[in-house]
Amino acid sequence: MTIENKKGWISWFNPFKYGTDRWMFALHRLTGIALGLYLIAHVWETSNILNGQVTWDKIMVDLDYPFGAHYGPFILSLILIVAVYHALNGIRLTIVENGLMLPKPYRPEFPYKAKSLRGLNNLLKIVLGIFMILISAIGVIFIFTGVIV
């Protein structure tokens, strides 16, 4: 009798030993789920405006001071970084998943490093990574100081 040996969805978050693209896939999934949950929370949060200004102001203060300290800006910064990563990696995936910026079929040579995961794809990762750092930095500075750099 054979038994199933499925890795299951939990293995999405096991990117070890498979290279950068696999790490980015795991992070993309993770940030996607996080953003989905955030969206639900966000709709709930903004819907509170229907309960009048007093409730709204209280919710605003509560969300800015969760767990008894001023963690609001940190959480907001995290959400921003998550969203920026998801958006920029989404752009990269849109490009490479349509077969653009990938090498032509080539002759595999030992030690068989896959060229589709390197080359222009890597360049794309670096460029979008720099963008991510820049956008996140501007956003985080804005969240903490209110100054647009």
Binding site: R22, F25, L93, A114, L117
Partner: peptide, 9 residues
């Protein structure tokens, strides 16, 4: 396919 590249790796 979501292009995680594990197959090529």
């Amino acid at each position: 396919c979501h292009f995680s590249g594990a197959c090529s790796e």
